[in-house]
């Protein structure tokens, strides 16, 4: 498994935990999504996940053997703008997002994802160790588009993590470049 694939799988675990924590705490309800399978892809990143909703639980899978109820495809920057309040219908109208299937189900998933407030550093520290988690935390702070200049934020995360996982020396250079 490539280091980046490991990273994304960890992200799916973290996302799954965060979503289910929201459900358990009663902060969100997913009864309307029960039995639904939703495909979700970021076109400019190797991120292709499926959300499976069953009996008040959500599973985040990297692949499914079954047809999905709805497929959502969009670019990472569009996803970020969606999370920061951009209107789904408006993005659809502008062809910035592709939805095959029930738009209402897609809207429900987007609403759910907006609720996720992951403290990546805290969660990751539980199974990556504090040093790596701390680095992850620093990297995710760059996710906020208000901190962005012209670079794609997910590319920054990708580059940083690749550097961290493959070549720590390069990661030090990356840190200086982005500090």
């Amino acid at each position: 498994m490539q280091p980046f694939a490991i990273f994304w799988h960890k992200q799916t675990i973290i996302l799954e935990q965060a979503l289910n924590r929201l459900i358990t705490n009663g902060e969100v309800g997913i009864s309307v999504l029960n039995g639904k399978t939703i495909g979700f892809s970021l076109q400019d990143l190797p991120l292709d996940v499926h959300f499976v909703c069953a009996n008040e639980r959500i599973f985040v899978l990297s692949a499914t053997n079954k047809p999905t109820d709805v497929d959502i495809k969009l670019k990472s920057m569009v996803f970020i703008s969606l999370l920061h309040g951009e209107d789904l219908t408006e993005l659809l109208r502008q062809d910035k997002i592709s939805i095959h299937g029930d738009v209402k189900t897609a809207q429900l998933l987007v609403d759910l994802l907006k609720e996720v407030d992951i403290d990546l550093e805290e969660i990751a520290s539980k199974y990556t160790g504090d040093i790596i988690a701390n680095q992850l935390g620093k990297l995710t702070k760059k996710f906020n588009p208000t901190n962005m200049e012209s670079n794609n934020p997910l590319e920054i995360i990708k580059d940083g993590l690749t550097a961290l996982l493959i070549n720590p020396i390069k990661f030090e250079q990356y840190k200086h470049k982005n500090s």
């Binding site: 499976v52 069953a54 009996n55 599973f59 079954k66």
Partner: peptide, 21 residues
């Protein structure tokens, strides 16, 4: 209904996760 696996330690070990919907 669903099953996926993840290789650990280069595939020496794998974790399969099966889901009942």
């Amino acid at each position: 209904d669903f099953c996926e696996y993840h290789n650990l330690s280069g595939g020496i070990v794998a974790l399969h996760k099966g889901i009942k919907v």
